[in-house]
Design a protein around this nucleic acid. Structure first.
Length: 262
DNA sequence: ATGGCTAAACCTTTTAGA
């Protein structure tokens, strides 16, 4: 079974690449982030034509998450329990479903913008809601393989950015953000490190300043797995190739290969 | 061999991304 996550930075702009990637790598489950479209505008027919069931939560210009599966898609959960709002709106940043006996959450954690910004405190509150939601699920079904996959918008360690000196007074590397990840680990989740096919294990390279060509990347798209999920993993890798060329997302897919489950 | 932003909407500027 192959499960992948990919922040596509607009499913509309990325559709041809996504379809080609699905055909090439044949994931059983794909978690998407930053759809940047409404549920009604999601290219459902094109994805279904490749054999996938689809669950989406998108409200328009910003955010948006989805789960695609060709091994079943049940118990779909839209959003987190007691998910915090931002400026009065419940943003589409988390969707969960059970696929072939595996619980998968596709998440797009708030960016935070600046450490003293309201968006930053929102980010930390959002992490707390994510943890509470998943903790309750794991307590209800301890043997069920579960993983949170997606764009966490936090680099877990200094080694997960190309130059930590460039991140003074910026989000993604602050102690409080990293503490949110450590807290997720405290409830039984493991940050499963992907194998870097080439170079550093980054998953994001900014569009600006030719960041990709310079190797200015970050590992912020993460796989947080519980023990049953972790035990089934046989490989985990970053498809850096997908970041290349015209029309790429600024994030690369992260792929998890695992033993087939029930 | 990878390339100096990109995308969507409030659309000729603004907002957000990280």
């Amino acid at each position: 079974m192959r499960i992948a996550t990919w922040n596509v930075n607009s499913i509309g702009a990325r559709l041809e690449r996504v379809l080609a990637w699905l055909e090439l790598h044949q994931p059983d489950v794909l978690a998407l982030q930053e759809l940047k479209c409404t549920d009604a505008a999601f290219p459902l027919m094109e994805i279904q034509a490749l054999g996938y069931e689809v669950a989406t939560w998108g409200t328009g210009r910003w955010n948006g998450v989805a789960l695609l599966s060709k091994v079943g898609l049940s118990d779909v959960t839209i959003g987190l329990t007691d998910q915090p709002e931002y400026e009065g709106a419940l943003e589409p940043r988390a969707i969960g479903a059970t696929c072939n006996g595996v619980r998968v959450w596709s998440v797009y954690v708030p960016n935070g913008r600046e450490p003293d910004h309201d968006h930053y405190s929102y980010k930390l509150e959002w992490f707390a809601a994510l943890q509470a939601t998943v903790d309750a699920e794991m307590k209800a079904s301890p043997a069920l393989p579960l993983a949170i996959i997606g764009d966490f918008n936090v680099a877990p360690s200094d080694d997960d950015v190309w130059d930590i000196a460039k991140f003074e007074n910026s989000t993604h590397v602050t102690p409080a953000e990293r503490a949110a990840l450590i807290s997720l680990q405290s409830i039984g989740l493991v940050d499963h490190l992907p194998r870097a096919l080439k170079g550093a294990p980054y998953t994001f390279w900014d569009y600006r300043q030719a960041a990709f060509g310079r190797g200015w990347g970050m590992r912020i798209d993460l796989v947080y797995a519980n023990a049953p999920f972790e035990a089934a993993i046989t490989d985990c890798w970053i498809d850096r190739e997908e970041r290349k060329g015209k029309g790429a997302s600024d994030h690369a897919p992260v792929v998890v290969d695992m033993e087939a489950s029930a």
